[in-house]
Simulated assay, not measured.
Amino acid sequence: MNKISAKLLGFVVKAQKHASHWACVTVTVIIATMATSATAEINLTFGSYAADKPTYTVKMYRPFLQYLAQEMTKILGEQVNIKMRITKEYETSIDQLANGEVDFSRFGPASYITVFEREPKIQIIAIESNKGSKRFKGAIAVHADSPIQSLSELKNKSFAFGDQLSTIGRYLAQSHLLDAGISSKELSGYDYLGRHDRVGAAVAAGRFTAGALKESTLSKLIRSGVPIRAMHEFDNVTKPWLAAAGMDPDVLAAIREVMLELKDAELLGDIAEDGFLEGSDADYDIIRQAMKHSKMF
């Protein structure tokens, strides 16, 4: 690498604003330890969207991506650098993976299905493990003091959804509401608030009677004193990590090897504290069914 034998670990966070709102955060992760035999660099960009606060999302990914780049450097014998691109909108992140603007991504199931329909050559690297399972919970929450105990009681009430492409925040929630005999016509009103934490805050503030959000965000909000509770829970499939079409097979294999072998809960943090499992497209068939069903909402 010319006269440079090592690079300091650096994290550069740059908020790019379009018009008058936050649009994207870019974090550059450069690993200090290089393979001594390295003769070239492999530069990768990881992309995802902020389902919670962008600052929290960036902080959540840092340790894992640092470790991933370090271990891939050892496997491939070339310096691996990983940049992070977190977008505000689900659709923007989907576009970036479909168009090859990022090399690999972490998406929710519905976003995976959406991007796969656009670019069938996208591959699943691995999917997250939840205590050895490929399933975890989503929830429909109400205010802590609400007397509502069932979905059917939400008739003529208001509802907060997440992003319009969110698995839990839209598709699964709408599918379960339909199963309870509630479509958009039976609600007094509804809106899409984008992020899970915004849904929880809106329900707690009384702006909506109920809302859909992931269990981990719900638990975090409750621990911080937000007055909400889970009224109904449902299964979701854990998140897939995806490789863009055309990724070098050796690079893909290295990412997969590191992910499947990693068991360190501290490194995995809030991403996948139980590690990763091998996954396939068929794992997400139940989400495809929910997405189809939600069209009746």
Rank of each mutant, 00 (worst) to 15 (best):
T33Y: 08
A243E: 04
E261Q: 15
G200A: 15
T209H: 02
P249Y: 00
K7L: 13
A51N: 13
A253I: 07
K59W: 09
D281W: 00
R118H: 00
K74N: 09
V102Y: 02
Q96N: 10
K157M: 04
S158D: 02
T45N: 08
I182V: 07
T55F: 14
A40R: 14
N43L: 09
R170W: 15
N43R: 13
L187I: 10
D264I: 02
E71Q: 15
S224W: 08
S152G: 04
S175Y: 01
Q70K: 14
I30S: 12
G206E: 06
I168F: 00
I31K: 06
D145C: 05
E215G: 06
M231E: 05
K88G: 04
H196G: 12
A290K: 08
A144W: 02
A202I: 01
K239Y: 14
R256A: 11
E89M: 14
D95I: 09
Q96A: 14
I182C: 01
E101F: 11
D191G: 05
H293Q: 13
M231Q: 03
A173M: 12
A212Y: 06
N156Q: 13
A243T: 11
I271C: 11
D248F: 06
F11T: 09
L177H: 08
P147D: 09
A201I: 11
S5D: 15
S280K: 13
P63K: 08
L172I: 13
L65A: 07
P249D: 04
E215K: 14
E41G: 14
F161W: 08
V29R: 01
L151P: 05
D197Q: 09
G138V: 01
I94H: 00
M296C: 05
T87I: 01
R85L: 12
G138Q: 02
A35V: 03
R170G: 00
M34C: 08
R198W: 10
F107M: 09
Q79V: 13
K59C: 08
L268R: 06
A6V: 09
L65G: 06
L193M: 08
I286K: 10
Q123Y: 00
R135L: 11
D191L: 01
E117N: 12
S5Q: 15
G275Y: 07
S166E: 01
L262P: 11
V29D: 03
E153G: 06
K131T: 10
G138E: 08
L97V: 12
E78V: 04
A204Y: 02
F208M: 09
K53F: 11
A23L: 06
D197A: 00
S158N: 05
P147K: 09
P109C: 10
K214L: 03
A15K: 12
S129C: 07
L151C: 05
I113Q: 03
T209D: 07
S146P: 08
L9M: 06
A244V: 07
D103W: 00
F234H: 10
M60E: 14
L213R: 08
A173I: 09
I286M: 11
A98M: 07
A6Q: 14
R195K: 12
K239D: 15
L151M: 10
Y56T: 15
